[in-house]
């Protein structure tokens, strides 16, 4: 199976381990990633400060390039890129007039047919394969953290339950993990403020999430967003200072966690690039159930 691939800027540098682990896991799942030729930045949260038209055009050029390459579905692992590209895809779908106008700006035709998928939506399709490719020994308590952009705005994301999403929990459970129930799944880590301009507020918001995951005795936070990962992982010294506690819980990309469960070499998953060292304890004991037992 093949799918279009939009890595986005952060996956080429500060979130390189996400790109590395996405590629490694997709290889195991026999999913061929076809990178969109000459893709450009999605504009993130900055483009529309200059102009709405600029924001739409930057996103639309990527969709037009995908269409020209014969790709009708593209995977954008970065939750922010996914949100931006999906908003353009939704805005342009079934709107020939807008497509025409944006095609002229971009200098390429676009008919409005490219669908944008986030990492979890793609992995969801492979739940059976994930279960088959793992030996179910990754029995770790994990806190599946979705953040904002995978589920909100609902019209753009069109994905999962907005208040208590389940997809990542199910994906991780398929790999043998034990997702904890917790209430910070979709709390904001503070990225909208930019982790650079308002570090103290980011530490406060991200700190609540880290503390909640630790309280639920999770051994790792699992995420599908480079912004969330950066705030919870790279800003850990500021978080710990704010909380006056020493939290060492690592923050893994969902593909890093799956990769570990699949037995992929940690080096290939970029685990050495995480700022908080990834050291998982012994997995939870295996629960042997017989047919008579009612599983919880």
């Amino acid at each position: 199976m093949r799918i279009g691939y939009y890595p986005g800027c952060s996956l080429t540098s500060s979130a390189r381990e996400y790109d590395e682990s996405v590629r490694a896991v997709c290889e195991v799942l026999d999913l061929t990633l076809v990178e969109i030729p000459d893709w450009n930045c999605c504009g993130a949260s900055s483009a529309h400060v200059a102009s709405e038209e600029l924001a739409l055009s930057l996103r639309a050029r990527n969709l037009a390039l995908a269409e020209a390459a014969g790709l009708d579905e593209i995977l954008a692992p970065c939750a922010a890129c996914f949100s931006r590209l999906a908003s353009a895809s939704v805005e342009l779908a079934d709107n020939p007039q807008k497509c025409q106008a944006v095609s002229e700006v971009v200098g390429m035709p676009y008919s409005g047919g490219v669908k944008v998928l986030n990492m979890l939506a793609v992995l969801e399709r492979f739940k059976d394969e994930i279960a088959a490719k793992t030996d179910q020994s990754f029995r770790h308590k994990v806190a599946c953290y979705y953040g904002c952009l995978l589920v909100r705005p609902t019209k753009v994301a069109q994905f999962d339950r907005v208040e208590d999403p389940q997809s990542m929990d199910q994906i991780m459970a398929a790999a043998g993990a034990k997702p904890v129930r917790w209430s910070s799944k979709t709390e904001c880590c503070g990225t909208g403020l930019s982790t650079i301009t308002r570090t103290e507020l980011v530490a406060n918001l991200s700190g609540r999430i880290v503390a909640d995951a630790a309280k639920r005795e999770a051994v790792a936070i699992v995420t599908a967003c480079p912004m969330c990962q950066t705030n919870l992982d790279m800003r850990r010294p500021e978080i710990n200072q704010k909380l006056q506690e020493e939290h060492r819980i690592p923050v893994l990309y969902v593909t890093q966690a799956l990769g570990l469960a699949m037995g992929i070499d940690p080096q290939r998953l970029g685990l050495h690039r995480n700022m908080v060292p990834v050291e998982l304890p012994e997995p939870e004991p295996e629960v042997v159930t017989t047919d008579d037992d009612d599983e919880d």
Binding site: C9, N40, C41, G43, S45, S46, A47, V49, A50, S194
Partner: peptide, 22 residues
């Protein structure tokens, strides 16, 4: 002011390179 400067720096990079150079 910092947020405005951040957006300007971000867009300047994208305008020059087509992708963000962090």
């Amino acid at each position: 002011k910092d947020a405005q400067a951040f957006h300007k720096a971000f867009l300047g990079s994208v305008a020059r390179h087509g992708r963000l150079h962090e």
